[in-house]
């Protein structure tokens, strides 16, 4: 019963859709009136786009409607089609198999079962049938071959696809746009003029960052292990907060100080630099011998 009503319902839906499109197109008309300024031009373009979308939607709807109609028609013709399908010449053809699927006969997917064992095929009691290759398997195989050829052409003949290196450049270019937006300053030679952070929240955050990332080399209390002691007044690369920040950010090539740029954010690096400077004079146990030059922290030795 439902199938009988289906075409009418679809027709109704389509007419509603089309009239909607028409109405929208009329709405858009006043906006299309001549206007001098750019804003109105933009609005006009927007209106055109809306009209276009509605038109496309309408067309798609129309196509779906026609297909539905066809399907409904075929569905009603099933008794007739069964008679056609019964004809051996039809049944053996490819469209016959497609017809079979439509009529609920899965042989087009599974292949035919031949229940007679092949003559002369007896190996230690094992016999063999000569069943068809399952069509779904066979056509699946063809499909993967087509995929293979198309893939190779796409990447190596027409060279439309991005290979590893190009894909990487693309990815990096996108990331560069992002970092430009974030205003990342990545010139090691450009001095910064940060002030030490003093808020308790920042110092706490710095402490956590230190424990997770720095303590392995500098010790839990910054007493120095592989890396130098950070609690004394001696500095290898400067003890002013911007100097410390610079060392944290860019590392020290060849000496083992890792560049934390890209691993910690600017804020995190400033937090940890500020935390380190709070440790001055804390005199931890097992402190490593002083390295570098003596500097009084707090009074910037020289402006960067």
């Amino acid at each position: 019963m439902l199938t009988r009503k289906l075409p009418y319902a679809a027709l109704l839906a389509l007419s509603a859709l089309l009239s909607g499109t028409a109405a929208r197109a009329q709405d858009a008309d006043p906006a299309a009136a001549p206007a001098a300024d750019a804003a109105q031009k933009a609005a006009e373009a927007g209106a055109d786009l809306t009209a276009m979308l509605w038109l496309m939607g309408g067309l798609t709807g129309l196509i779906i409607f026609v297909l539905l109609m066809l399907f409904a028609l075929l569905w009603q013709m099933r008794p007739l089609l069964r008679e056609v399908y019964a004809l051996p010449t039809i049944r053996e053809s490819w469209y016959g198999r497609a017809l079979g699927l439509f009529l609920g006969d899965p042989v087009g997917l599974t292949g035919k079962y031949k229940e007679d064992v092949m003559a002369g095929h007896d190996y230690d009691g094992i016999t063999e049938y000569d069943n068809d290759l399952p069509p779904w398997w066979k056509y699946g195989f063809y499909l993967t071959i087509v995929f293979g050829v198309a893939y190779f052409i796409h990447f190596h003949v027409t060279r439309d696809g991005e290979l590893s290196a190009a894909e990487y450049q693309h990815e990096m270019a996108e990331a560069a746009l992002l970092s430009a937006q974030l205003g990342a300053n990545d010139d090691p030679n450009k001095p910064t003029d940060y002030q030490s952070l003093t808020a308790a929240a920042d110092i706490d955050a710095g402490k956590t960052i230190f424990a997770q990332n720095c303590a392995a080399c500098h010790g839990q209390s910054a007493e120095g292990k592989v890396g130098p002691n950070l609690t004394d007044e001696y500095w290898l690369h400067g003890g002013e907060v911007n100097k410390v920040y610079h060392t944290v950010k860019y590392g020290v090539q060849g000496k083992g100080m890792v560049a934390w740029k890209g691993k910690l954010s600017s804020k995190q690096m400033l937090q940890v630099a500020s935390y380190i400077l709070t440790l001055q004079g804390s005199k931890p146990a097992n402190a490593k011998a002083p390295q570098g030059e003596k500097e009084a922290v707090g009074k910037p030795v020289a402006r960067l």
């Binding site: 009691g125 094992i126 016999t127 063999e128 049938y129 000569d130 068809d132 290759l133 399952p134």
Partner: peptide, 18 residues
Amino acid sequence: YYFLPKAAERPVYSYRLS
């Protein structure tokens, strides 16, 4: 191909597939 048809006591499904 040997032990399955033996254990199931059934003919191999399809010679041409093999």
